[in-house]
Every structure is written in structure tokens, then in C-alpha cells.
Amino acid sequence: MKLQQTYSKLIKQEAYRLGFESCGISKAVFLEEEASNLESWLKKGHQGEMHYLENYFDKRLDPRLLVDNAKSVISLSFNYFPEEQQQNNSYKLAKYAYGEDYHHILKSKLKELTSFIQNQIGEVNGRAFVDSAPVMERAWAQKSGLGWRGKNSLLIQKNKGSFFFLAELILDLELEYDTPFKTNHCGSCTKCIDACPTNAILPNNTVNGSQCISYFTIELKNELPASVKGKFEDWMFGCDICQDVCPWNRFSTPHSEEKLNPHPDLLAMNKQDWEEITEEIFKKVFQKSAVKRTKFLGLKRNISFLK
């Protein structure tokens, strides 16, 4: 047990050194409670066209199917709240997409953390995950003591809010495990539910993904439905409405990761600039950005829908 405590302490110290804001550890087990929730969510069709969420049902619920002999899930959070935001007369991007693609930034840091663990502890096998594989990241973060899931389904941390990425390391190493976060500090607040213009946030701490502005502007490849015309409140890629109104986000502080800073041209662009954007400017401003996911024509489609 003493060794497990030492290892856990070492890992957390290195995680903080690499810039992660929080680090919690939980035992790699089957997520029993999540199984029925996920099944019900999928049966109701809340995934919309995101059919990849229907795949690997068992793997989503059991990390031991992702990593042989998995013993521990290390959950990490990384702040992305920007120091400066877009001007008011602009079509809006979700704040996470201001800078370089977070998948690459965090994967690189997780690689460093894995190397550190192997150098300090010995032969440890595992896999790193950044929102790109069948891992129930919010469930693991809560189980690892990082925070609670708000009514908008996002993980919220006391005195920090919710503007952070989540990442995981699943290892075949036994560690000291943190206490799950049990208390929900949302209380009777319904600000996120009330503010969502497409009524995507359901009263049971879940989101109907097929009605979320982020889904429409990023995931949906077909024509945008007329039923949501006029409801996007100028969001052209992703949406932060439910986070912007959350009282816990008054505690958000600017991140210190240079790679997450926006391209200098981005913050200066107004609605007219966006409406006249060329493919050349798109490639320049979003060279390493997650916005490339929607492609130039996808962004143009979204902007046209907002006009």
C-alpha cells in the first residue's frame, strides 16, 4: 500500500508539472451505473447521426477491454479558458477551438507522463485517451474525485468551473485510489437548461445530443434542419451557452498554454469578415485548429445558416 501511495503521489506531481489542473485516480472496473444510462440514451436516439457512439458498447463501460490487465484509470483535467474572447459583432466559436487542436496538445503531454511513469516505476503498460476513443471520461473523472456532472452533463469543479478538457491514462499498475465525488453542487439552479435555445438539455443531467448546437455545427454533415433556423444565437462552430451561464464558471481563470491561444486574426474578425472568408484565410487562421474538422465548406454552411 505504501508503494501505491508513493507511485500515485509521483504521478500527480508530474501531471501538475506538465500543466494539468487536476489529477485523480480510480480503480479500473466495469461502470455498472453507466451501462443502463448509456443504453437508454442510445435507445432514445439522442446520438443523432453520431453512429460511432453506438459502437464498442462493452469497451465504453469496461477499461479492462481497452488495456490488458488494466488496474487504474488516471483522470486529468486541462484548463482552456481564454484570456481574450471574440468581439461582440462576430459569429462565435466555442472557446476550446480558439487555438491549436487540443487532441494533439494533450496527447503529447500524456506521452510525456507515460514515459515518466515507465522511467520512475518500471515496466508499466497502458493507453492514453483524449476524447477520441470509447472512454466514458466524465464518469471516470467523477469516480476519480475531480468533480460532479452538471445538468448540462459536463463535469464541473468547485472553484474552477467547467472550461477544461478531460483526458485519461489507463494502466496495468495498481495505485492508491481517490474517493469518488458524491455531492452535486448544482442544487435547484436551472440556468443552463433555461438558456439552451434548442432545448437540448434534459432535466435528468443528460443532453439530447441530436439537438445540441455543437452537434448541428460540427457533427451533422447534411443540410441543417429548418426547425432550428434562428436558434443558434450566432454560434458557427460549437457552443458555450450552457457554460457561459453556469454560476460556477465565474471562477474560471485564463489558461497558460501558449498553443491554445487564438491566431491573431481570429479575435479581430467581425461578422462581415466571416461572411467573406476565403479558403486561404480559413487555412491560415485554422491551420492547426480543431475547426478544420468541419472543413471550409462546413463553416460556410453554418455561417450562411446564421444570416
Results as ranks from 00 to 15, higher is better:
E275T: 14
K92A: 01
M1F: 10
K151C: 09
C196I: 07
Y16D: 04
K71C: 01
E174G: 14
A128I: 00
R250Y: 09
Q272E: 13
N89K: 12
G126T: 03
N152I: 07
K143D: 01
K95I: 05
V135W: 00
E33K: 03
L76Y: 05
E176F: 02
D265H: 11
A200F: 02
F81M: 01
Q13S: 06
A139H: 13
F57A: 07
L297V: 09
E174S: 15
Q86I: 07
D234C: 04
V135M: 02
W248H: 14
N159S: 14
F116P: 03
I170H: 10
Y102V: 05
A167M: 08
L155W: 09
N270C: 00
S36M: 03
W41C: 06
G209I: 04
L202Y: 00
S75T: 10
F232Y: 03
I11Q: 07
Y91I: 06
S115W: 05
G187R: 07
A35S: 08
F165E: 08
Q120M: 10
G230F: 09
K27E: 15
Y7V: 00
S75P: 10
A94M: 00
P254H: 00
D131S: 01
L220Q: 11
V285I: 13
H263C: 14
P180R: 11
L66S: 11
R301F: 05
V124I: 03
F282D: 06
S22A: 10
H46W: 15
S227G: 02
N125R: 04
G161V: 10
N37M: 14
R301L: 04
K92R: 15
N199C: 07
V291Y: 14
P264A: 13
G19A: 12
H51A: 13
Q4H: 07
A226H: 05
G99R: 04
F81W: 12
L61W: 01
I74C: 04
D62K: 05
C212V: 00
S36I: 15
D265V: 05
G19C: 13
K111P: 00
I25G: 06
E39R: 02
N159E: 14
Q13R: 07
L173T: 02
Y56T: 06
Q287H: 08
V29W: 02
Q118H: 03
F78N: 07
A226E: 15
E14L: 11
K307R: 12
C23M: 05
N125Y: 05
I117G: 02
K182M: 07
L220K: 06
W148Y: 15
K182H: 08
P247Q: 13
G209E: 05
D101L: 10
N249C: 12
D131I: 03
L93D: 03
R127N: 12
E49F: 03
E275Y: 00
K307T: 10
Q243F: 02
G238A: 03
